[in-house]
Design a protein around this nucleic acid. Structure first.
Lengths: 142, 142
DNA sequence: GCATCTTAGTTCGTCAACGAACCTTTTGCA
DNA sequence: TGCAAAAGGTTCGTTGACGAACTAAGATGC
């Protein structure tokens, strides 16, 4: 009667943890030893969308604003991004890339491919599509 | 050319985070305000498998052993579990349930159903099966 | 024009999680 | 038999993440 398997949520969490470990090791391999997966998420987001406010960034990376402030501050300390007050609204701080992070754009592209590719290993294109569809439907339940 | 969507890993992480938030709110609702999702995972594992060593427990909940020690110690402090040295191997500490946690067994059953059920909302039985299958295949890539 | 409310960000205290170093007991092996 | 290696746990320092309380700037209403 008692199922030997934990629920889906547990499996989802496990997959996330393994993937994050993979991200962390890729970051280390690239020499970015003091960056965590979340820092990478910020950079990847900025590569795609240029400068963003902390508010917008926090939504993109799915983190609370206080966490985002701290993650960005670390990236600033390490020279990967910079913060500038918006001209239109003095409350808004825009986070933008630097020469240093722009130089790593390609690295992050490869990193993304490695990390996402590993999850999909052995999946046909249709299965990949199915998986993302089911995932996005599950996400809509929140 | 640049996809507007982040990769699957990001979606998986997002789903995990939302589900964990749900777990946290359910724990709060049940009056267990000082328990985190991981503490719940330990209790649920023990409900299913009786007493386990810290080693075995750490594998079941997918956490490192030092983390497991700390999570269990908190559960002991709060009276939910107890630790006893194994008779056969003095190195091994067996973690077992207490009257307090046994009294909450039903609560955790409901919690699990609520949390996992939410993910599956709008899913047919076949889709649920498909999702868990794809997920377990992805997990095997690690 | 001024007070109030809302919104963007920051600060701070707390906690789960980890890795590394460590202790203890058990196992392996020469 | 004895000693090195392995295995189970713990300790400790560090870090990402959070919520709550706060500041400052902008919007709203009277």
């Amino acid at each position: 009667m008692t199922p030997r398997t934990n629920g889906i949520v547990f499996s989802v969490a496990q997959l996330r943890d393994h993937a994050y470990e993979h991200v962390a090791s890729e970051l280390k391999r690239l020499g970015m030893t003091d960056l965590a997966p979340s820092h990478g998420a910020i950079l990847i987001t900025l590569y795609r969308e240029k400068a963003l406010s902390l508010k917008e960034l926090s939504i993109r990376i799915n983190k609370k604003k206080s966490s985002t402030t701290e993650l960005v501050d670390k990236l600033i300390r390490l020279g990967y991004v910079e913060k500038a007050t918006s001209a239109e609204d003095q409350r808004v701080k825009l986070v933008g890339l630097t020469a240093k992070s722009l130089a790593h754009k390609k690295d992050f592209k490869v990193l993304s491919e490695n990390v996402n590719g590993r999850v999909y290993k052995g999946f046909s294109i249709e299965e990949q599509q199915l998986f993302t569809d089911l995932l996005s439907r599950a996400l809509k339940n929140y």
